[in-house]
Design a protein around this nucleic acid. Sequence first.
DNA 1: CTGAAAGCGCTAACAC
DNA 2: GTGTTAGCGCTTTCAG
Lengths: 341, 341
Amino acid sequence: MQPTIYDVAKKAGVSIATVSKVINNNGRIGKDTRKKVIKIMEELNYQPSVVASALTGKRTETIGVLIPDLTNPFFSEITASMEERAHELGFSVVICSTNDSEEKEAKYISLLLRKKVDGCILASRFKQVGLIENMVKQGIPVALTGQDIPSLNLNTVSVDDYKGGYKATAYLGSLGHKNIAMIAEKNARSSEERIKGYVDAMNEMGLPVDEALIREVKPTVAGAKQAAEELLSLHVPPTAIFAGNEILAIGVSQAARAFQLDIPNDFSVIGFDNTLLATICDPPLTTIAQPIEQMGRQIVDILISEINNKLDYKQRIMLPPELVIRQSTKELSVENGLVND
Amino acid sequence: MQPTIYDVAKKAGVSIATVSKVINNNGRIGKDTRKKVIKIMEELNYQPSVVASALTGKRTETIGVLIPDLTNPFFSEITASMEERAHELGFSVVICSTNDSEEKEAKYISLLLRKKVDGCILASRFKQVGLIENMVKQGIPVALTGQDIPSLNLNTVSVDDYKGGYKATAYLGSLGHKNIAMIAEKNARSSEERIKGYVDAMNEMGLPVDEALIREVKPTVAGAKQAAEELLSLHVPPTAIFAGNEILAIGVSQAARAFQLDIPNDFSVIGFDNTLLATICDPPLTTIAQPIEQMGRQIVDILISEINNKLDYKQRIMLPPELVIRQSTKELSVENGLVND
DNA sequence: CTGAAAGCGCTAACAC
DNA sequence: GTGTTAGCGCTTTCAG
């Protein structure tokens, strides 16, 4: 068995209260006593139990992170960043993949409560607002990232999805594309904003917004590929597609290839997120970048500030998305333009 | 504050022992009492504290998972699978990304010990064998995946890396390639086995093994790209490269492209792992598949069996790697063959 | 400065 | 069947 505070106290010839004080570095302790206790702790390789200390009202030094799907690079990257920052600040991270299931959302929230996590970060696509309100009511700090829920006053770090959608669409327009389609993720708050941005950009450019050109699909390569193939089969197919994230953009690229379309000469795609995927596919994807690394760190910083009661008021940070131009987009060639006019 | 067992007991007019018994479903309890207690628990929305129950010797229902890098798809995919299986069995997962730092390995192990996790899974590339022995000595269950450490008697689920390396190389040979290079990950046990497989396959095919054709690099796209560029700059460049994983394979593909080589017509690449990356890059990668999903589930099953003392002896499972043929490999064309003879 | 003692929320004998 | 009670390992008054 591992040694307890009693073992240390006995061997050091002091009381457990004294040992506790040197562990937590508080109270008045004589220099020599402290030194001796520290020595014994090292000898015994004593590690204070977080469980016991949590029971006396201290923290568990653990935060829960709910994400939809760890195999999506956006989420694995932001999770990695959160995990790193949390550890820097002395907290562990327990991850819960919801797979977009409401049942799991509820199950995991309840689990985290039973485990007495100090706080909780909900990444995109969390569905049940009621569950969040419940946690807040119970006094446990909650923070959001990758999505903003305006109706709730919560710490949030997100990217301006509306502006991102607008930028992506406007960029395609600036390249001369007129027949621009969008493939978006179904059932995600952030996705809706991106669609709004798309619609507004189209309108402002005086381009017709055709509902048939907006497809909402499950966030899989296959789903996007199929949707893109349908779009490319239209009587007047789009010359460019704005994909709501990079998994979808890959699906679009595959569809284009299946239609013998060369990217970017015959057809342009733009993605969203700027994950590893954008750089490794061929051609590399033009995309709307989210500062993933920064978002992860910042949301952890904010949550832990709240846990430490160092937050006077809720923070709502909205970061600007950036257009990153790579090789999947190009000016519409006259030839193609004519075909579509 | 959240309600405690006392609140429930008081409101139900019974003792806390009774409540405890209905929670844990043991001891004799009258039907009516049970029903009443359950009703009160629901009314109060009572959630038993895992922290308190852990302190009395029960489990924390938490396992620790150490991985090198969550942004590598192999690890995010295997982590996702472990997380899912663990939750199915009632356990949470705390993840620790070591980034291949020995300091972090030590820090996280000690952290997990302080948190009293019920067990621990170490994924590939764990360096300090001594730390593992230490945990075992303290009686905490440890399992390994993605690597086998023969000197330690631990539960292990891994893939036969030697055979995988052999298969990859033999396949390239069967396509007529003679000048085959390998780019491997530096400092990983699994990588060494893959190299051995490569060497033996070359020997058996009667092909010369040139040390200069084996490069060990950091597991990044950039690292692999540079190494591949160097290989392609050789007086007699290889016509095929076996990359130790898919991140590396992507780097190799990029290098080939930079050298104006068409894959697979001018040049073949084969990867290892069979992650999302293999399917999304262009052309899709021929690769040696690890059954990632299965590995994750199985190692969790085994670890939790050990936690439950349901394991009579250590399990060491070595899964067979499978060759998955896609479009990044092709028979060596006569033309290229002549150049290299 | 240091220690005794109460208590955190729960479990597990052991009584009744 | 149900309740009493002694811990689990630690923190925190409060005395001394």
